[in-house]
Write a protein that binds this DNA or RNA. Structure first.
Lengths: 335, 335
DNA sequence: TTCTGCCGTGTAATCGTTTCCACGAGGGAG
DNA sequence: CTCCCTCGTGGAAACGATTACACGGCAGAA
């Protein structure tokens, strides 16, 4: 493929001039500019970003490591990140950790070697040594959706505490008392936070927290199914199953349907994390909606500020309860 | 950040030796290897992939341009591509064209400048000049899911013709005669192919094709909703609405629900492209399932073969009809 | 002993850009 | 006329790796 040298030769100027034209520096005559443009066109020259990056120490690329791109929440997040990044002139490399720390580390390593200008991570579980190093090295790094304890890294996330409180009160108002929660993995900040919010809200509402009504899944559909099954097998099964993310909700729904139970009469269902099709389930599923797009955009902005050396403080966005019919009638339903 | 020079200095060897250790060449003594490893460790050295790529002319990176990452079909596709690529030692850069040719071109340009080792494109509509150039240049390029006419580029895709035929016969067997189709955009190969299959199958089954029962959407939910609305507004509305992708099915479902119509009694619904939650809609939605994972894997393999200069022939995978209850009772339902 | 070959190593060129610096031409001011 | 500044330009040194080539030492063969 033609390089800048060939272009220079064809245009009858030096490589320096070609480079100046390409980066439209003002320090170049109209004449030269025209000749170079013609040569570029004729040779179908495409600048080599690899060489450019080597010289300039900037790749105009951001890395994004998500838990699972097939999870609609992360898909929406990824699109928002990618959109905002493109607007700022950056390309995004997406890594799929599949919620596995070793895979997450694989991508961290690869992306660092690629010299991305910034890294957005939805951390999977543990603080790996590699992550600790990165945090210590102080490169542009921002945690997205989740945080890790004890590291000096800014994070952009959603706080669902208030919405969970509202949900529990809503359920209580509908007459439900036995509310079970399929929580997320203990090591994940989002898992811990939601569990805590559930427990606090139950207490605040004067409801008993039963050990057998609280079990941790792994944010994947299958665990939701299994745990819902165990809840339903209890001598005194819960009146409500509240699942900690949309995939576990899907799993729970599968299990409830497989047993031929009716929602909400036999058991009610609620989800942390809303997805488009919840309104089409019969009955539509009550859920806590997270502002995923906003989250993605804010994360990119925070990252870019960080990359420019400006200090950035954590961003915390609120979630919103969307009442539908899967927990019982409440007059009008929201979409 | 420390470079190979610092490592060499600290280990007391030359940069050549360090490089050889890093690429574990056999031509290096155990002793040197140990010293270098120690230095690498101590300095937390990370090879600079940018410099390496410049020298070796290989980035070990593949580009993937999808129509819309939020569409579950593409999300699954992207994960499969990314998975298979990782297995082969490649990183994937995902670009989101949002079904817009100019955005697709933006990514093609960017990825070419980044010197990706191969490019996987789900082409959006038209043959742009840029795409034509690429095809002509003969770089490693493979079309995924969709094809473009008149270009010498191998493609990996699904052929839903047989499944659509089966669906139409199934609907006919259930007593339906007035079958409307929300087709995809005319310029897209998948849109054209499905429309053609619908028309052929209708004819083959002895059903009339009515002009007012065939309208093209843009593979986004909103168009599905609008077109379904127009179908239902007809003096003689169809008995079945068959939508050309999962998002338009979602839109149609919205519209049907908004009108308070019952499925399948008032109108039946079928989808080209299956997604996980279809089984949870009441009633579960009959759909044609595409082997998205297989598609992604095959595409990567084809691309890598192409990159190695081996000739690759087009891959065409069959789709599969999954009968559920949204078109009427049929004895047992599949999951 | 001397020659041959291999093995481990180092020197330096190279990849395609950007950018610092120098240089010559031209023009305005003194 | 001379001086100086500006403007457009080109030469060449980076950037951080890989790798062709050369070289010295040592072992085995003659």
């Amino acid at each position: 493929m033609a390089g800048i040298k060939e272009v220079a030769a064809r245009a009858g100027v030096s490589v320096a001039t070609v480079s100046r034209v390409l980066n439209d520096s003002p320090q170049v005559s109209e004449q030269a500019r025209a000749k170079v443009s013609a040569a570029v066109e004729a040779l179908r020259y495409r600048p080599n970003a690899v060489a450019r990056s080597l010289r300039t120490e900037a790749t105009h690329t951001l890395g994004l490591i998500v838990g699972d791109i097939v999870n609609p929440f992360f898909a929406v997040l990824a699109r928002a990140v990618e959109d905002e990044a493109r607007r700022a002139g950056y390309t995004v490399v997406i890594g799929n950790a599949d919620e596995r720390p070793e895979r997450q580390d694989h991508y961290v390593r690869t992306l660092l070697e690629q010299r991305v200008d910034g890294l957005l991570i939805c951390p999977t579980a543990e603080v790996t040594p590699l992550i600790r190093d990165c945090a210590a090295a102080g490169g542009p790094l921002v945690f997205l959706d989740r945080t890790l304890p004890g590291l000096d890294v800014p994070s952009v996330r959603v706080d669902g505490t208030a919405a969970i409180g509202e949900l529990i009160r809503h359920l209580h108002g509908l007459g439900h008392r036995r509310i079970a929660f399929i929580s997320g993995p203990e090591p994940l900040s989002t898992g811990r936070e939601r569990t805590r919010a559930y427990a606090d809200a139950m207490r605040a509402t004067g409801l008993r927290i039963r050990e057998e009504y609280l079990e941790a899944g792994d944010f994947q559909a299958e665990s939701g199914r299994a745990i819902a099954g165990r809840f339903l097998d209890l001598p005194e099964p819960p009146e409500v199953i509240f699942a900690g993310d949309n995939l576990m909700t899907l799993g729970a729904l599968d299990e409830i349907r497989a047993r031929g139970l009716r929602i909400p009469d036999d058991v009610a269902l609620a989800s942390f994390d809303d997805v488009g099709w919840f309104v089409h389930v019969d009955p539509p599923i009550t859920a806590i909606a997270q502002p995923a797009e906003e989250l993605g955009r804010r994360a990119v902005r925070a990252l870019l500020e960080r990359a420019e050396g400006r200090p950035v403080e954590p961003v915390v966005l609120p979630a919103r309860l969307v009442k539908r019919r899967s927990c019982g009638e409440t007059g009008r339903t929201q979409r």
